[in-house]
Design a protein around this nucleic acid. Sequence first.
DNA 1: ACAATGTCGACCTATTTAGTCGACAATTCG
DNA 2: CGAATTGTCGACTAAATAGGTCGACATTGT
Lengths: 151, 151
Amino acid sequence: MAGVRLSTKGDYGVRALIELALHEGECPVQRAEIAARRQIPESYLDHLLAQLRRDGFVRSTRGPGGGHELARPSAEVRLLDVLESLEGSLAPLACLEDGEDHSEQHVICGQQWVWREIYDAMRLRLAAVTLAELLARDRERQRRLAPSYSI
Amino acid sequence: MAGVRLSTKGDYGVRALIELALHEGECPVQRAEIAARRQIPESYLDHLLAQLRRDGFVRSTRGPGGGHELARPSAEVRLLDVLESLEGSLAPLACLEDGEDHSEQHVICGQQWVWREIYDAMRLRLAAVTLAELLARDRERQRRLAPSYSI
DNA sequence: ACAATGTCGACCTATTTAGTCGACAATTCG
DNA sequence: CGAATTGTCGACTAAATAGGTCGACATTGT
């Protein structure tokens, strides 16, 4: 329920959302396509989509023509919220966990104060990044990597 | 070998070093005393001290009157280095690991750029904190928690 | 009806974490 | 010297987490 060493959940999950953002406003994208285009194990992706659905980032529809799409505009989805949905708290120390006794910090942890600074800065930065921005950066990189055919 | 979710190693290890800093210039401190005063499992502490010794933070002497002491002045020991000794790389994403192919970043990871920013800032901050400062803060907190007998 | 798709939970394996333990080495002191 | 004290090192283990797979089932378009 805690920790910033991003696991594959955070990585895969964000990849999947970027893929959904890429198709924003179009028809739903299927699990198989997301998995293939972003190199995610298909049956594992299931769990990530389930979590993102629970937390209101994704809407899914069944049956032929079904698939997954963003439940909210990509410009309004903050990376911080997505990651906290997928990974749980991002606190680098257990004693910084949300809901901990904050008034009188753990008596013994000698480095808590530095990590609190770092944690706060990290959350601020992650809150400032939207899915739309992630998509834009992703597109830009794709462009750099796959140069246009017409020189 | 990677990850910033501090494990107990980083926590315990730094506690132990703070205790050593507290006795800087005095005779060596024994494993049992460090463990008791900083609430660390004694036999586990062994491993942490071994690592810190390997990386030149601690010097140990055997026999009666033996124990452990700082190998370098506490003011010259950076928290960043201590943590990297105990935890390995602190990179929040595998693709940011030192020694990774940095020129052409992992093609698929869509959030690498944010995490690189955060990682760099984090390392800068951790590099600016010395063991001496950790000790000073620790003392200050002890003082706040255990008010002096003379009001 | 049936094919395409998503949903959900049980299950599994490898790795990491957080230790414990015991044999051994070095050192001091009497 | 020899006994007591302290550190050193490696093998071992238990529990948790990571990273999945799989199969039964639900829903929906044609």
